[in-house]
C-alpha cells in the first residue's frame, strides 16, 4: 500500500519541532478561550458593583475594569472572539485570493479581465468606511457578517500576486503536461498550481490572522465591529491601553494573548510550509 501524500506531510509536520509547538500553543489558546470561562464564577456580562478598577485578587484573578467587570472573563471571552475572527477571516480571504488569482492567471482572456476588474473595484472602495457603514446597519447579525466583511476587503492584493505567479507557473512543463493529458482546468488549479503556491499562501494567511484581529479591534475602537458589552482582544486592549501605566492589569493579559496568538499562528504556518515544501 502506497502511503498517501497527506500522511507524508503529516509525518514531516510531526518531526518539525517549531511547527508542532505552534500547533500546541494554538490548541492551548483554544482550550483557554473555550474552557477558561468555566473556572471563574464571573461571566463576561457580569458587573461587580463592589469592585471598581481593583487590581488582581483572589476574587478577580486579573482584577476588574473601572466599571466593575472581571478582566479575566472579558479577556477569555475576547480571546474566543478574536481567535474565531482571526482564523476564519484569514482562511476565507486567503482562500478567496488563491482561487480568484489562480483562475484569472491560468484561464487568462476574458475571465482574467473580469476578475481583475473586480479586484480593482474592491481596491478602490474605501474599505473601512464600507465595513463601518455595513456593520452598523447589520447590527445583531453577529460575528459572521463581520468576518465576511473583513475577509472581503483583505484578499485583493494577494489575488493579484497569486495571478502573477500563476501566469509564470502556467508555462511550466508539468502544467503543460497535465493539460495535454486532458486534466480539467479546476483540477490543474487545485492540484498543480495552488499547491505550488502554498508557501506564499501560508505566509499570507498567517499575516492575515493578525491583520484581521487588528482590523477588528480598530473597528471596535471606533464603535463598529464587536460591541460592548461583548468583547474581543481588540476592545479589551483599546479600553485598557489608556491606563497602561497606572492599571496594567487591564491590558497586559489581553495584549500578551494577542502576541501569543500571532506567534502560534506564525510558528504553525512555518511548520506547515516546511512540511509541504519538503517534497
Amino acid at each position: 500500500m502506497i502511503p498517501s501524500r497527506g500522511s507524508a506531510v503529516a509525518r514531516r509536520m510531526v518531526r518539525d519541532r517549531s511547527g508542532v509547538s505552534g500547533f500546541a500553543l494554538l490548541a492551548l489558546l483554544f482550550l483557554l478561550a473555550f474552557a477558561g470561562p468555566l473556572f471563574t464564577r464571573w461571566s463576561w456580562a457580569d458587573t461587580d458593583f463592589t469592585a471598581f478598577r481593583d487590581p488582581p485578587s483572589a476574587a478577580h484573578w486579573l482584577g476588574t475594569t473601572p466599571s466593575g467587570r472581571d478582566v479575566y472573563a472579558l479577556t477569555v471571552r475576547g480571546l474566543q472572539k478574536s481567535l474565531l475572527i482571526g482564523l476564519t477571516v484569514a482562511t476565507v480571504s486567503t482562500g478567496l485570493a488563491a482561487v480568484v488569482g489562480a483562475f484569472a492567471g491560468y484561464l487568462g482572456g476574458r475571465t482574467d479581465r473580469i476578475l481583475m476588474a473586480l479586484v480593482d473595484l474592491f481596491l478602490v472602495l474605501p474599505a473601512f468606511l464600507v465595513i463601518a457603514v455595513l456593520s452598523q446597519s447589520a447590527r445583531g447579525h453577529g460575528t459572521l457578517l463581520l468576518v465576511v466583511l473583513l475577509a472581503g476587503f483583505l484578499w485583493m492584493v494577494t489575488a493579484r500576486v497569486v495571478r502573477g505567479m500563476t501566469r509564470s507557473l502556467r508555462g511550466r512543463e508539468y502544467v503543460l503536461a497535465a493539460r495535454f493529458m486532458g486534466v480539467s482546468a479546476p483540477r490543474i488549479v487545485f492540484r498543480h498550481l495552488l499547491p505550488n503556491l502554498a508557501s506564499l499562501l501560508i505566509i499570507d494567511a498567517t499575516l492575515n490572522v493578525s491583520a484581521a484581529i487588528i482590523a477588528e479591534s480598530a473597528l471596535s475602537y471606533f464603535g463598529f465591529g464587536v460591541q460592548p458589552p461583548d468583547s474581543s482582544l481588540g476592545t479589551v486592549i483599546a479600553a485598557g491601553s489608556g491606563a497602561a501605566t497606572t492599571a496594567p492589569w487591564l491590558f497586559v493579559p489581553a495584549a500578551s494573548l494577542l502576541v501569543c496568538v500571532v506567534l502560534a499562528v506564525n510558528l504553525a504556518g512555518d511548520g506547515l510550509r516546511d512540511a509541504l515544501d519538503a517534497s
Partner: peptide
C-alpha cells in the same frame, strides 16, 4: 518533455 525535472510536479508523489 525534455527536462523530466520540470515536467513532473515536484509536490506530487
Amino acid at each position: 518533455f525534455q527536462d523530466p525535472a520540470a515536467a513532473l510536479d515536484p509536490r506530487m508523489r
